[in-house]
Nucleic acid binder design. Structure first.
Lengths: 355, 355
DNA sequence: CTGAAAGCGCTAACAA
DNA sequence: TTGTTAGCGCTTTCAG
């Protein structure tokens, strides 16, 4: 029995294309990579051979040869809850879409914070939020892997990040309630361990302060973003001896729950209670009264992160090819971007008409 | 200026490990791949060298050398709606988790049905549902790329698929309502273009037939799964001259909307109207009354699909290595799996107490 | 403008 | 058990 040399079946390779078009593989490579120094007649021959043979260059060979990888990993921490949110889907959508546009491959990592990331072959990483996985971030930074963080403004690390102006958004939400004449304004927070929730609380406080409204701790209800906790907060809020007339809720999902509770308790919205959410989750559109909310440009944030990562990746390979040395503070510096969040007024808030 | 030979910075490679541990690269390769024929003392030396040098084998080189790729693409069609659902997230979660377990890389493709898939370097494909993208499926099958379809039972193609027994689930839901004494049972469908929605309708009809309950077309409300259409269906349903006493809704998200509408219209649930959903979406747990529903094992389905794909991939590489030729109908045959859906009884249904 | 040839890092066939 | 060596398919010098 004769030994067969090749372990796996042969795919059409650059060699076949070269043979078919009567040029060298180098020339084929040139037309693949659009390197301009190819005679037009040759480039046409090669191009048509590629078509005929349905040739697709092997990314593995390309990457092995170039040392570059255009695989983008999106790291989503798999901690309780996050991954069941509108937020996660929007992120995936945004990143996914932009990757298709920029011809990057999107590798999805649903990881818990303890397991170190397997970074084999990854060209860049997008960390969505960082809760427990700061170590993973520092790790990849140390290894020189281009990284960007989204939905978390990182002050103390030399890394690009793109976040939403949660404090600003919250502030404008509360300002709106104040303009409507409300003075007793409650806040149902999200999980205060997340930067987003903390910043929203901050914005809430700032708006009250600037308007000389005394902060009342009994008007602040902490939750973990879950509907269950939103429900219980809403009950306490409404049944309180001196109930607030308006409430700013840290997420639309929770705001909808609050509306439901209010109705169950015989309250009318917005007559008895003005409610404002955060997210602009499409769910808020349905139901009897449209939810006024703060829109955060999640998709845009996700898309921007891919672009920024792409920039970092190109930068890195340029440097490796003998470009000028990395100058700190130059164009190579990480970018820190804060995207504005915008108030969307619908029907769930009403001017205060009390005494 | 001296030319620098290497275009990109040198990473630690198998050669470094070999040198550090005083063996050949082959031996190093053997311990990496856990091929047993290595002297224990050597394996230890190599292992510790790998640790010391923090060596991670290049997947690109590995794949180039083996011709195998363990990249799994998850194709989610980006048509309106699907990607905003509980369903999509569960799928991603399930597939993502199992990929991490089996050490497969998950490539996420959010694609519209028209664009041909870029299959470069993909070892296998999971098609989540197939609506408009049947061509993409046939394409990858033709190219011999291991593929599996989830959430769509494919009869007419030689491909593995894993779906939920939607008809069965629907039938047991409606049976439950019948057992409770209901005779006027309505159904709010999902997007009938999806197999899931069509099968649920089928199950609804079957249950009625088997129990000799006359099918009433005015009790069937077609929707596209959106909350908006659910709302309008619910309004028509409730305001009808001869309203149903129970309704089976094709998704929990819609069922929640129906509950909301019922309450707005002054109906009590479950006293005035029994409601049963489909999905076991955790949202159904909150709210004043827990939603009775049909649980579909989405995560399990997703996980199974990865396992099956993994099987197909191994099978393929075994065959390529000179294993016995593919025998149709043998162990290599595609598997078609139907997972049962299970009724989850909570508080949204009540025995019929009418005349 | 082109092509020969030297890698990229790894696996696998074969010989020892 | 082990090491030698020939690829895997592509990019990139460097010399025409």
């Amino acid at each position: 029995m004769t030994r067969i040399k090749k372990a796996h079946p042969k795919n059409i390779s650059i060699v076949d294309v070269a043979r078919a078009s009567g040029v060298s593989i180098t020339t084929v490579s040139r037309v693949i990579n659009k390197i301009g120094t190819v005679k037009e007649s040759n480039r046409i021959k090669v191009a048509s051979a590629i078509k005929d043979l349905k040739f697709q260059p092997s990314i593995f060979a390309q990457r092995l040869a170039t040392g570059r990888s255009n695989v983008v990993a999106l790291v989503i921490p798999r901690y309780e809850g996050v991954f069941y949110s509108f937020y996660a889907l929007e992120l995936i959508r945004g990143v996914g879409t932009m990757c298709e546009v920029l011809k990057l491959d999107l590798l999805l990592h649903l990881t818990d914070a303890r397991t170190p990331l397997s970074l084999r072959g990854v060209g860049g990483i997008i960390f969505s939020d960082i809760i427990g996985n700061r170590v993973q971030l520092e790790d990849s930074l140390a290894k020189g892997i281009p990284s960007v963080v989204i939905n978390y403004y990182v002050d103390d690390l030399d890394v690009s990040c793109i976040a939403i102006d949660n404090a600003g958004g919250a502030e404008s939400a509360v300002n709106y309630l104040i303009e409507l004449g409300h003075k007793k304004i409650a806040h149902i927070t999200g999980d205060i361990m997340t930067q987003a929730a903390a910043k929203r609380l901050e914005g809430y406080k700032r708006a009250l302060e600037k308007n000389n409204i005394k902060l009342r701790n009994d008007y602040i209800f902490e939750t973990d973003y879950s509907r269950g906790q939103a429900r219980s907060a809403a009950e306490r809020l409404i049944k309180s001896a001196d109930p607030a007339t308006a409430v700013f809720v840290a997420s639309d999902a929770m705001a909808l729950e609050v509306m439901a509770v209010a109705r169950e308790l015989g309250k009318n919205i917005p007559d008895d209670l003005s409610i404002i959410g955060f997210d602009d989750n499409p769910s808020g559109l349905y139901g009897p009264v449209g939810l006024t909310t703060v829109r955060q440009p999640l998709i845009r944030m996700a898309e921007e992160s891919v672009k920024e990562l792409n920039r970092l990746i190109s930068l890195k390979s340029a440097t490796n090819r003998g470009g000028s040395a990395m100058v700190s503070g130059g164009k190579n510096a990480p970018r820190k971007i804060l995207l504005p969040a915008e108030l969307v007024i619908r029907e769930s808030c009403k001017p205060f008409s009390g005494g």
